[in-house]
């Protein structure tokens, strides 16, 4: 499959000069699509998210990075209405989203993917795609009974789905169950499905995790392509190489807070960011990171053994 991928020539064109004034965490943007204020979320005693102020620039690719358990996924959940914050409010294109349920957020044009891929296994790849389309008449239960009312729209949606699938090199799989796809293909499908709704802002939670290197390049191209189509992208990623390659702006989270932001090169040489990664050893996330896992395993072992001595 990798042989089909068009190699990107040179570096992508970066958007620059999006902020106003000095670059500090929470710096205002010239044209923000999301503005969040005082968003906090605690789990028991743990403060997972504590974002004072952050703005996401429009029509740019913003990377959200940070060590395991920094609160990136939780922040995504909050922004998209999948979780409720303890405090705080935020706007999407000037509209306040606090308290808006997740499906409405998606309808407003802010769609997301999940860190743990959510392919709808027992639906065909094509049905997965069709589900993504907005404003389907046949999704009303009563209209559904009258197929002539929605058949034409269905055909249009199918054409669009096939076109997108072709772009993501999944068109040969259209009639297969999504369950039969590989992990990387599922990531692609999830992203393609999200695009079916013509979103304004695409939020990708670790789109590259688990994707083999051959596919990575094509995924990167897709993400860059979104920007040229006028969309805004916010994505979480652990691979710094990739972040450096495609992001226009980078926001760094650690222990729930925004600790730094700026253009990729500047951020990566920022000592605060290195500190954040080094100082992350006491978090409690049970992520895929093998070292992290080992640490947790050891903690449990210690707990178990403590009593044998007594």
């Amino acid at each position: 499959m990798s042989s089909d991928v068009k190699p990107t020539k040179g570096s992508p064109v970066k958007s620059v000069d999006m902020h106003v004034g000095e670059i500090v965490p929470g710096v205002p943007k010239k044209d923000p699509i999301i503005v969040a204020d005082h968003v906090t979320r605690t789990f028991g005693g743990l403060t997972a998210v504590d974002v004072d102020h952050v703005e996401i620039p429009r029509n740019a690719i913003t990377a959200l990075i940070g060590p395991n358990g920094a609160g990136k996924t939780t922040f995504f959940n909050l922004l998209t209405g999948f979780d409720k914050p303890d405090t705080g409010k935020w706007t999407f294109m000037g509209k306040s989203l606090a308290g808006i349920p997740s499906f409405r957020v998606a309808r407003l044009g802010q769609v997301r993917t999940f860190q743990l891929t959510k392919a709808l296994s027992l639906l065909t790849v094509l049905d997965n795609m069709k589900l993504g389309a907005k404003g389907q008449k046949g999704e009303n239960m009563f209209v559904a009974l009258l197929p002539w009312l929605w058949r034409k729209q269905e055909e249009e949606i199918e054409a669009k789905a096939m076109e997108l699938l072709a772009r993501f090199k999944l068109d040969t799989k259209a009639e297969d169950y999504a369950a039969s796809l590989s992990g990387g293909q599922r990531k692609l499908l999830e992203m393609a499905r999200a695009l079916m709704s013509d979103p304004t802002l695409v939020m990708l939670d670790e789109p590259m995790a688990g994707v083999n290197p051959a596919l990575t390049q094509s995924l990167l191209d897709h993400i860059l392509d979104l920007k040229t189509q006028g969309m805004t992208v916010l994505f979480v990623e652990h691979d710094m190489q990739m972040v450096r390659h495609i992001a226009d702006w980078v926001i760094v989270m650690a222990e729930g807070k925004i600790v730094a932001e700026g253009p990729p090169d500047a951020v990566m040489s920022n000592p605060a960011v290195i500190d954040a990664y080094l100082g992350s050893h006491h978090d409690q996330d049970l992520g895929e990171d093998p070292d992290q896992e080992k640490e947790n395993v050891n903690a449990i072992k210690e707990l178990l053994d403590a009593d044998d001595k007594s």
Binding site: T80, F82, S102, F103, R104, A106, R107, V111, R112, T113, F114, K118, A119, L120, S121, L122, L123, D127, N128, L131, G132, K134, E190, R193, A194, M196, S197
Partner: peptide
């Protein structure tokens, strides 16, 4: 879709 994963369907609006 809801049967397979309701959060995914929710994320699609």
């Amino acid at each position: 879709g809801i049967r397979e994963d309701e959060d995914a369907v929710r994320a699609l609006g």
